[in-house]
Design a protein around this nucleic acid. Structure first.
Lengths: 126, 126
DNA sequence: CAGTATCCCAAGGGATACTG
DNA sequence: CAGTATCCCTTGGGATACTG
């Protein structure tokens, strides 16, 4: 399993440090996949906060802010503040973020191809 | 974005039906990636409930049960009950589940290669 | 404009006990 | 053995209001 990990060392309890699980934890939060996709489409260009919000119907200011902050914190997204008043903040994927786009796109394609089958199965089961 | 969806139709509020988001919702729950990986490694063979639990340190009976039930419900996992007493229940990935293994493995590889960089970035940021 | 702060609710998930 | 049922706590995330 290659459970070499930096934070959650096996031993204390069990292994919360499986990289895949940790990655999916991050990607699994509600707005991440959408933000990453929008930024990936714009890459290597940037997208402003307001533009992201406009293109993500239903997202609150708080959650968009939190999502972007987390992604920045993880080094997947870069923030650039234009020192005007009112300020404009631009976001883009870092190289690390871009490198994630590939496997993520594969997952997206799978989802778009097969979610119908999942829905069908789920519907049959009730 | 190909927002054609069966359940969450755009119109009422916004679009909660993005396939990728829905897929990540499912994969993002705590034990899914681990179960899928174990079943994928055993494919096309089966794995018993107790064996899964033994190989997933920390999982509770409840959560393993819930996880497997959800995956069955979605048509990713098949359940086979051996009519003995006490009963033995065997799980395996369906064809649909197996087809997910590919993109998921790509994501796993990315995670194992790059989680260190994420940790580094997160650590630098505090 | 791009946030942060506060409040609050619903869902995820752990512990424990019980059953076919 | 392989579950289900109950209880309870923690987290994700929405609504609203305020600030540099």
């Amino acid at each position: 399993m290659t459970t070499r990990t930096s934070t959650g060392q096996r031993g204390d309890l069990f292994a919360p440090g499986c990289p895949t699980r940790r990655l999916l934890d991050r990607l699994g939060t509600k707005w991440v996949s959408m933000v990453v996709k929008l930024l990936a489409e714009a890459a290597p260009g940037e997208v402003r906060f307001a533009e992201l919000q406009r293109r993500m119907p239903g997202v609150s200011q708080k959650m968009l802010s939190v999502t972007l902050r987390n992604l920045s914190h993880d080094g997947l997204v870069a923030r650039r503040v234009e020192p005007t008043v009112p300020p404009r903040v631009h976001y883009r994927l870092t190289d690390l973020g871009l490198s994630l786009e590939n496997p993520l796109a594969a997952l997206r394609e799978w989802a778009e191809e097969h979610m119908v089958e999942i829905d069908t199965a789920a519907h049959r089961a009730g």
